[in-house]
Write a protein that binds this DNA or RNA. Structure first.
Lengths: 129, 129
DNA sequence: CCCGTAATTGAAAAAATTTTTCGATTGGCG
DNA sequence: CGCCAATCGAAAAATTTTTTCAATTACGGG
């Protein structure tokens, strides 16, 4: 994972600094972290640098930014998946079986050219029921 | 639309103030407005009051808050629909034909109880192609 | 292996956004 | 019509993100 991300950085002509690597490692430890959670995992990296690293990773397609109602969160953009959000405990989890897999989206009729999509499912998780 | 929203406010024991009505009217003029756009449509209402009205409407299910990458936006929560976001011009549009209509979401296998869902489709709109 | 240079970093300041506070005002019931 | 809890607005505070700029550093070329 690190290797792939570093490859994209190199390919883009960006430098592989210890700070960027530290942020990548922090991202790899858990999905959907807030900025503060992320920062706690690499306290040696300055706040501004974390923001800039996340921007860069976003451009390179390494990281996705989410906002599911409680502020920005970040995840490594590996594999196609969608999100379940528990409205009781706030937990965010993922599922990979995409309901749109073989289904054409109805948006073609608008002349819309699809590049990507996301699905969020809101409800109660098993633990909260 | 106004009537229904005011009914919910009354039903919840909240007062129908001119400010709240002004924000509702502003919301009705266009979907997916930012706070500033909204505020430009009811400049007589104080900033804080707009925030509070939006919070209240959110609790009452009158308004939904979106964050599709460029900050918070607000829409009247009427009818089930999803969003197409053009990555060229940033335009947000809606479609009503829900691809999950009759399709069971695969999340039941996680013991997850579904209350709602949302879909966003990213790509290029007809105008930008 | 060292050097030069452009990219990167970090601290401070600025900007942007959202929330809190609290005294003044007001909608709606009696 | 009058009361009073709910609401409002302005200012201040808190939070989040971006900008600035001088110091540091990764890394390709010599």
């Amino acid at each position: 994972m690190l290797a792939a991300a570093i490859g994209k950085m190199r390919g883009g002509g960006y430098k592989t600094t210890p700070q960027r690597v530290a942020v990548l490692r922090a991202l790899a430890e858990e999905q959907h972290q807030s900025l503060e959670e992320l920062r706690a995992r690499c306290p040696e990296v300055g706040l501004v640098t974390v923001y800039r690293a996340l921007d860069l990773f976003g451009e390179l397609g390494i990281v996705r930014r989410l906002d599911l109602g409680d502020g920005a969160r970040y995840e490594l953009a590996e594999g196609h998946h969608h999100h379940m959000i528990c409205e009781s405990c706030g937990d965010i989890s993922e599922f990979e079986e995409c309901p749109l897999d073989q289904k054409p989206l109805p948006v073609g009729s608008f002349g819309f050219e699809v590049h990507a999509h996301s699905i969020e499912v809101y409800g109660r998780c098993a633990g909260c029921r």
